[in-house]
C-alpha cells in the first residue's frame, strides 16, 4: 500500500485516496474552436507509461483536495507531490 504525502495533510495511506488519472492533460478552454482530433485526444487519449508519471489523486477520505503525485508506475517510488494548482 502506497504512502502518499498529501500537500495539505501530510503522509497518509493509499486507502484514503482515489486515483484520478493523468495529470498532464489540460482541458481545452471553454468556447474554444477545436478540431475533432484534438478534442478526442483530450477526452480519450492517455499515456500509460512504465516509469515516471504525473498523476492526479483525490484525497477523498481526507481533505477532499485533488493533488498531483509524481510517481514511478513500475517501482511505485513517489518523487514528489503537489497541490492541484501548483505548476510542476
Amino acid at each position: 500500500m502506497l504512502y502518499i504525502k498529501c500537500p495539505h495533510c501530510g503522509l497518509r495511506s493509499q486507502n484514503e485516496f482515489a486515483y484520478g488519472g493523468d495529470a498532464t492533460i489540460k482541458r481545452p478552454n471553454l468556447n474554444q474552436e477545436i478540431s475533432n482530433t484534438e478534442w478526442d485526444n483530450f477526452v480519450y487519449l492517455r499515456k500509460s507509461p512504465r516509469g515516471r508519471h504525473l498523476e492526479f489523486w483525490h484525497h477523498i477520505s481526507g481533505c477532499r483536495q485533488w493533488i498531483k503525485v509524481d510517481r514511478d508506475t513500475a517501482t511505485h517510488e513517489i518523487f514528489n507531490t503537489y497541490k492541484a494548482n501548483e505548476e510542476v
Binding site: 482541458r27 492526479f56 483525490h58 477532499r64 483536495q65 485533488w66 492541484a84
Partner: peptide, 12 residues
C-alpha cells in the same frame, strides 16, 4: 468528486 475536480483543477 466531479465538481471538486473542476473547481480545484480546471477552473480554480
Amino acid at each position: 468528486s466531479h465538481l471538486e475536480y473542476y473547481l480545484q483543477i480546471v477552473w480554480p
